[in-house]
Design a protein around this nucleic acid. Structure first.
Length: 492
RNA sequence: CGGGGCGUAGCGUAGCCCGGUAUCGCGCCUGGUUUGGGACCAGGAGGUCGUCAGUUCGAAUCUGGCCGCCCCGACCA
């Protein structure tokens, strides 16, 4: 029947898909390529939003909102960007329907209502935002302009996968303008750090900060930085990007400012974003065959309390106690769910909340009332312990911190075990096929080599790690000299 | 857009080869017994078999068109 998940080792993709659906996170919509994020899944996104938004504000950013539609001429102004996204754009060509004269009750697109200029549904908002910035920026005193937008974007993907790739997705995109290149570069790096910190401290997901190759760079950027995470099947997931745009968009949209010396200069730009894809990453980084494992810092429910009772009187007695416990935890800012449904057995509830990844479960029965104890189970290790009721208020917060730290450590350990240094192409292929994970190798830095390696091994260049130490070597493919090891992996 | 597969109740399916008005499980509703790791019994509701056409006395089943979905490629955060 429906509750058993496919095992991870059997078929990772199917396990992932099953899990997303059975844990009530999201489902495929009837609309082509689109996804419905269900309340439980969306509440994880809200948690992420809250944490990220706070970090953005702390680094001086403010939120704004720009239109969904981008006139085609505006879209094509920055050539590389337009070209890069051209193949996956949805376009509005008409603004009206009318009843079909030949087919009662049906509607057709009114040919009379053709737009003079087509509107592109934003795949990203650089174009519309920079055309607006032009109006906002005159003087160096208007800079830096540090704006973030929470929005949806549309990229017409051929093949979709819940959270990881859908035709429409939710994200945040930061767009900043600066007076100097140096300041913009600093901003790009700062936001990459923000993402890395978010991934590690909130998602408990270790990431490698790095720089993309020419081939994988954001269209229109000078440099693209990224954070790369490893999923439990050893594949890489690009979890966030931060771009140094140079003056490309300033040129395209003619965004200039008067500097202190009274001279006109083009501004320098950055953009950076993370999306609901992070939810996919969160799932694939931690969860097991019993379901989701959520880090306490992002779990919509921290503690679920399951009463064990035989009669209504028993339930009432237990409920009184539960309310005490729940309120003492809620006072400390934790979200507590009392699962007092009377049509389900405790065992069923245990399994269900495990599937949904609630970090801590408390069970209270008549036995506990007598002894003034509770049974506490942690989701990550599935360990159970009986503790004194009086200790709950102090023990649970500690336990949650423990879980947060533990799943990070576990993911970190997994990543280091699955990261391999290789020095020859044969070894490279062997590791990819037999072990998977990240492969650290010397690469000559050329697009040709990158493409051939991708074609032959399906592994893509992920990034040049920012903390890579200088090390003389030779490219595993071409034998040409190289100064650093870079990361290759099969990826999502 | 190429290659493969599928479309039957809210979900998962059997039936299709060999035509006779649809099977089973889960879920749902009612009543009862249960409840410390995915309960059980009894009764009940729920289906234009993706869609349109054709063949036929008769189509879930055969034929053709269309629509949609999934998997593998190409594309991608």
């Amino acid at each position: 029947m429906g509750k058993e998940l496919t095992s991870r080792s059997e078929n990772y993709s199917q396990w992932y898909n099953d899990l997303v659906k059975k844990a009530d996170l999201a489902e495929n919509s009837d609309v082509r390529g689109c996804m419905v994020i269900k309340p439980y899944g969306y509440s994880i996104w809200e948690k992420m939003q809250q944490a990220l938004d706070k970090m953005f504000k702390e680094t001086g950013h403010v939120n704004a909102y720009f239109p969904l539609f981008v006139p085609k001429s505006m879209f094509e102004a920055e050539e590389k960007n337009a070209e890069g996204f051209a193949k996956e754009c949805a376009i509005v060509t008409h603004y009206r329907l009318k009843t079909d004269p030949n087919n009662k009750g049906k509607l057709i697109v009114d040919p009379e209502a053709k737009l003079e200029e087509e509107l592109v549904v934003r795949p990203t908002s650089e174009a519309i935002i920079w055309s607006t910035y032009k109006k906002w920026i005159q003087s160096y005193r208007d800079l830096p302009l540090l704006i973030n937008q929470w929005a949806n974007v549309v990229r017409w993907e051929m093949r979709t996968r819940l959270f990881l790739r859908t035709a429409e997705f939710l994200w945040q995109e930061g767009h900043t303008a600066h007076a100097t290149a140096n300041e913009a570069v600093k901003e790009t790096e700062q936001m990459l750090d923000v993402y890395a910190e978010f991934a590690e401290t909130f998602m408990a997901m270790p990431v490698i900060k790095g720089k993309k190759s020419d081939g994988e760079r954001f269209p229109g950027a000078i440099d693209t930085y990224c954070i790369e995470a490893m999923m439990q099947d050893g594949k890489a997931l690009q979890a966030g990007t931060s771009h140094f745009l140079g003056q490309n968009f300033a040129k395209a949209f003619n965004v200039q400012f008067t500097n202190k010396e009274g001279k006109l200069e083009l501004v320098w730009g950055t953009s950076w974003g993370v999306s609901t894809r992070l939810i996919g990453g969160l799932i694939m980084a931690h969860s097991d065959d019993d379901g989701l494992i959520l880090p306490p810092k992002l779990a919509p429910i921290h503690v679920v309390i399951v009463p064990i009772f035989r009669s209504d009187e028993e339930l009432i007695k237990i409920s009184t106690k539960v309310e005490e416990i729940a309120s003492s935890l809620r006072k400390q800012g934790y979200s507590v769910k009392f699962d007092n449904r009377d049509n389900l057995k405790p065992g069923f509830k245990f399994a269900e909340w495990e599937l949904k990844g609630v970090p801590v479960r408390i069970a209270i029965g008549p036995r506990d009332l007598e002894n003034r104890t509770i049974e506490v189970a942690r989701r990550d290790t599935k360990e159970k312990q009986v503790m004194k009721m009086d200790d709950v208020a102090t023990a649970i917060p500690k336990l949650l911190d423990d879980i947060q730290a533990n799943i990070y450590e576990k993911a970190l350990k997994f990543r280091s075990e699955k990261t391999t240094k290789v020095d020859s192409y044969d070894e490279f292929k062997k590791v990819l096929d037999e072990k998977g994970g990240f492969v650290l190798a010397h690469w000559d830095g050329t697009a040709e080599t990158e493409t051939i390696i991708k074609e032959e091994t399906k592994a893509t260049f992920r990034c040049i790690p920012l903390d890579a130490s200088a090390e003389a070597g030779t490219c595993i493919y071409s034998g040409k000299p190289s100064t650093k090891r870079v990361v290759f992996a099969r990826a999502y």
